[in-house]
Design a protein around this nucleic acid. Structure first.
Lengths: 142, 142
DNA sequence: CCGTATCGGTTGCATATGCAACAGTTGTGT
DNA sequence: ACACAACTGTTGCATATGCAACCGATACGG
């Protein structure tokens, strides 16, 4: 039986280390990386939207956003239609570092996919996205 | 650009949640799961072997093993050939819960791979293991 | 309407994790 | 044989993360 999850967890941790090393000089730790990419891609997402997208506990999301707000990377604006919701927007400061964050992300992707053919990657993506879908469904049913 | 790492991280976290829910009644938290599988598969591994296999920081490994030892799941025996090394062995108690841990692991794998053909899985495994290899190489070069 | 359930977010607490500094052991070069 | 580098594991500290309890806002059923 091949160890899918072992490989998957290992890659995940290695990437986290890679991000830390490449971006620590900019005051961005590994855990901020995903937030920056998601928030810049989806300005106006609520905290819950981010929680769902990033698959982290909502308390972790709230606290990470506290930090990102305090260092000036995001603005949080209460939703006027539903006063429970808080909408998250990137600031200019985030947009300034975005290219570098994206570059680190791309470098990592390029390097781990070295020597893998287009056909293989296509199958890989297809399988991976179905797995992600299933994983979220399974958690939703618990 | 497809988001490999986002999917991969999401699946990783979902699995962690799944493990917690399925095994919390037995006093096993998600992070022990991998340790139990690895130690039972490789009795006599040193802490460093485990660190490399599991891709976690060595301090985390040392502390998790402290815990597993204190609850009676492992025994640690200093290596007589190299007194720096500590060899880790499963106890009877670990072997008793092993089937259940393996079952949870298998259930998860079966469920996330539902509807994926053998050919697709073969390509997926091939690509994933190469990515894992590359990821570890990249970290090694840092 | 009113009472209740649900939802989105926050907080207290416990645990997990990483990094850097450290200690003891082994290997290496002279 | 000795000095020094590399290796293995441990510890102090800071941060990240999850869970459960909570709060205010909204939806829903009578």
């Amino acid at each position: 039986m091949p160890k899918i999850m072992k490989s998957l967890n290992s890659i995940s941790r290695c990437q986290s280390t890679y991000r830390s090393v490449k971006l620590s000089a900019d005051g961005i730790c590994a855990c901020h990386h995903s937030f920056i990419l998601i928030i810049s891609r989806h300005p106006g997402y609520s905290q819950e939207d981010i929680t769902r997208e990033i698959c982290l506990n909502k308390s972790t999301v709230a606290r990470t956003l506290n930090h990102l707000e305090s260092v000036g990377y995001i603005t949080r604006i209460p939703d006027s239609d539903d006063k429970r919701r808080i909408l998250v927007y990137p600031t200019e400061k985030m947009l300034l570092i975005l290219p570098k964050v994206r570059a680190v992300s791309k470098d990592w992707n390029d390097r781990i996919t070295e020597g893998i053919s287009d056909e293989e990657m296509q199958v890989f993506h297809s399988v991976l996205s179905r797995m992600e879908q299933r994983a979220k469904e399974i958690i939703g049913e618990l």
